[in-house]
Design a protein around this nucleic acid. Structure first.
Length: 762
DNA sequence: GAGAGTGATATGCCT
DNA sequence: TATCACTCTC
């Protein structure tokens, strides 16, 4: 116990040892949030207030869930394997697997990831003869998911116009299709669980009385449905311990509702709020920058980070002439950091959008500096893996039409569009799955479809008694996938991945405890062993049972494949610089951080202007970026940037103006301004040199037809504020300029009329 | 059924 | 600009 609570600061201690009631913990960046969360669980268990079975701990990512479990087992001599620590989706899956019958699902229901969902929707639109120009699959997917995330079924959606009525209609059709095929999408996992527990009183009361303590991580990222889900599982007596940071809410665009924090405080824990404001990560100047920046947001719960670490180094700001030059500068700077002894992996380069990584990667590659880019395709999203998984899905649940269509003719076996059309007609006519419709097809098409079915049945029969990894082995071979890729030019990597799938299966079996002797299908005896609880005369199989007793290893592995998309391909081992978007940097920390592209339109991103509260979200994003840095922070922006094949002239980000001057250091040498996008090599001049009158003179006489202005020039306008000249058309008295005024937008001004002033940056 | 050609489209991305 | 999904052609 002493051990557990040692070294906690007073606020952390207070949070960890709160009495059993709901509380909101406002945990700033780097304030020891995960530590508080895990220590709280350990403390509750160790003091005997609750048994491990009475804990429900919810996270957003598998990574966070794993880390929590790992830290907990390091603190207490308990097996966290059976504990309810997981993601919203993982825990929902666990409940639905146990109570599949009550939830109205087939026992072998399968999970669609977003890719699968989209293709299911495309298929639906085609089958329903819907104009996919008018109702694009993406929009429908968005419509369905946001409805589900608000807890709304198709019939609950309020449709004010024809468009929305149609969308709701398609939503209903989509749900029917999913039900028919025995598949659920991500949002459905939560909604089904929510509906199951709302409808089923004994079940609800069972879990509510069981989960005395519900702990939630990253609470600011919860959406409406997740909030309701938590409320339902905690019940009237459960204590909800919600940890979050409203200043780090950066996922509103995908449904997260920061408002949940305020709502939670109102509803659950009036006044029971603890702020963790001591930051153990960053030096003072970096924190000052973060605090001052975020103070510009209006809707905050209020929080100010402080540190004992001293001011440290100032935040360095660099102005580049072009994106290429920005990258070059970063490389030079990083090189000298490494020369001074920094590990490359301690250096992160952050950017707002993925498109920016290209220039950086190119420069790093040319310079021969090892780097690692986060994001991109992950293991279970790769086509060859998806194919192998589809075969396995068909063996587990043949009515999964998505899986059927994915592999019925891959590798090719002469089943073309015409055969499939016949098959789809038959399936529609009888209201059955494609797989089940195969016997209705005659002729040549019937023969080839028939042998596909035989292939699946054969594989199922052959692997019935085999452990999972051997099952996978048989499937990738018998399906013809390996042979197919062997004949392909770039098939070697894919074969390697397929082999890795076998290893993944074997790892999964070992980690999740699916022994080789686990029953492939459950008999009544296994169900009985799963732990039977009687509540109000109703028999309840508690989802306590370890997964091996409620699921076949194959079903479990397929869930795992959908819920955990796997790692990105990262070449481990080598000491490499870290490149990633600001979003994916959340939760990470680095000694040295470069935040690049701090320009109006990029960061804050121009699209955010259209969104309600978009600018504040961008600012929180910037706040997240800044607070990643421990010791040294660089901010850079560029006068020109190639984006989508066009040169853009951006103004420096307003966020730079929102930082405290005292914590900043503008880096010399300053670069000269270009004109007409010429890549005129910047030549160094001292930061406080005389203004660039020379440049203007040249520009005037040579290139801008005497208007006195040049492209790329920074100007100021009485009404529109600061801007940058993007283009000049006409000449002399007729000259007009397109000027990008950042937040005021693009204006076309008559140069002989508009009262513009020349402006020299910074 | 593979490859070329076309056109649209381009924040952020976990489950 | 470059990528991707999709259609067209042999």
């Amino acid at each position: 116990m002493q051990n557990l609570l040692a070294n906690l600061n007073p606020e952390q201690l207070a949070a960890v040892t709160l009495p059993a009631q709901s509380a909101l913990i406002l945990a700033g960046a780097g304030s020891g949030k995960t530590r508080v969360l895990t220590t709280r669980i350990a403390w509750l268990i160790q003091t005997g207030q609750v048994s491990p079975a009475g804990i429900l701990a919810v996270t957003f990512t598998n990574k966070a869930a794993k880390e929590m479990a790992a830290r907990l087992s390091a603190m207490l001599p308990i097996n966290t394997g059976g504990m309810w620590i997981g993601t919203f989706h993982g825990l929902s899956n666990r409940l639905l697997r146990t109570h599949w019958r009550d939830a109205g699902l087939p026992q072998t229901f399968q999970i669609l990831d977003s890719q699968d969902q989209l293709s299911a929707i495309k298929r639906l639109l085609k089958a329903a003869n819907v104009d996919d120009e008018k109702y694009p699959a993406r929009n429908l997917a968005y419509f369905i998911n946001s409805a589900k995330e608000q807890g709304l079924r198709a019939q609950d959606v309020e449709a004010f116009d024809d468009y929305n009525r149609k969308m709701a209609e398609l939503y209903a059709l989509y749900d029917e299709q999913c039900q028919r095929e025995g598949v659920v999408d991500f949002a459905e996992l939560l909604l089904r669980t929510y509906e199951l527990l709302s409808r089923n009183q004994p079940l609800r009361e069972h879990y509510q009385s069981r989960f005395r303590h519900v702990l939630v991580d990253e609470f600011q990222d919860t959406n409406d449905l997740q909030y309701k889900w938590l409320k339902l599982l905690a019940g009237p007596r459960g204590a909800v311990f919600a940890v979050g940071d409203d200043d780090q809410s950066i996922y509103a665009f995908r449904g997260a509702n920061v408002g949940n924090m305020a709502a939670f405080e109102q509803e659950f824990c009036k006044g029971n709020l603890i702020k963790l404001e001591h930051n153990y990560r960053s030096h003072g100047h970096i924190l000052d920058a973060a605090n001052t920046l975020i103070a510009h947001n209006s809707k905050r719960l209020g929080k100010n980070l402080h540190t004992d670490a001293g001011h440290g180094e100032p935040v360095r700001i660099y102005e580049a002439s072009s994106d290429l030059q920005e990258a070059q500068w970063i490389i030079e700077e990083a090189k000298s950091l490494v020369a001074e002894g920094a590990a490359r992996s301690d250096i992160a380069i952050l950017y707002r959008s993925n498109a920016q990584s290209r220039v950086l990667e190119h420069a790093l590659f040319s310079a021969g500096i090892p780097y690692r880019v986060y994001g991109g395709l992950r293991f279970f999203e790769r086509a060859e893996i998806k194919h192998a998984i589809a075969y396995l899905q068909l063996m587990d649940n043949p009515h999964n039409d998505s899986a059927f269509l994915r592999v019925v003719n891959f590798p090719t076996r002469g089943i073309g569009a015409r055969s499939l059309e016949q098959l789809q007609d038959a399936a529609r006519q009888y209201g059955i799955s494609l797989y089940a419709a195969v016997p209705y097809i005659t002729g040549k098409a019937g023969t080839s479809l028939g042998s596909f079915v035989k292939l699946i049945e054969g594989m199922r029969f052959e692997t019935q008694q085999l452990p999972l990894q051997e099952m996978v082995e048989v499937v990738i071979d018998k399906s013809g996938l390996i042979a197919h890729y062997r004949n392909e030019k770039e098939g070697a990597d894919r074969i390697e991945n397929l082999e890795q799938l076998v290893s993944a299966a074997s790892l999964f079996v070992n980690e999740e405890g699916f022994g080789n002797d686990a029953p492939a299908l459950l008999g009544p005896r296994a169900r009985a062993q799963a732990g039977v609880v009687i509540a109000e005369g109703v028999e309840i199989v508690d989802a306590d049972a370890p997964l091996p007793t409620v699921m076949s290893p194959l079903s479990a592995f397929l869930s795992h494949a959908s819920l955990e998309s796997g790692d990105n391909q990262a070449e481990a081992g080598e000491d490499a610089m870290q490149l990633m978007t600001v979003h994916s940097a959340k939760g990470l920390e680095f000694s040295m951080v470069f935040i690049t592209g701090l320009e109006e339109g990029l960061f804050p991103h121009e699209n955010s202007a259209k969104e309600d509260g978009g600018l504040e979200e961008e600012r929180r994003l910037m706040y997240v970026a800044i607070t990643r840095a421990m010791r040294r922070l660089y901010l850079s922006f560029s006068q020109t940037r190639m984006l989508h094949g066009q040169t853009r002239y951006n103004m420096k980000s307003r966020f730079l103006d929102e930082l405290p001057e005292h914590a900043l250091k503008w880096l010399a040498p300053k670069v000269q301004h270009h004109w007409f996008g010429n890549q005129r090599s910047q030549h160094a001049s001292a930061w406080d040199d005389a203004p660039e009158t020379g440049v203007n003179t040249i520009a005037q006489s040579l290139v801008n037809k005497g208007s006195g202005w040049r492209i790329g020039e920074n100007v100021s306008h009485a009404k529109f504020g600061e801007g940058v000249i993007v283009n000049i058309e006409g000449s002399g008295n007729n000259a007009r300029a397109h000027i990008n005024f950042g937040r005021q937008g693009m204006k076309l001004l008559d140069l002989s009329v508009a009262k513009l002033e020349k402006l020299h940056t910074a």
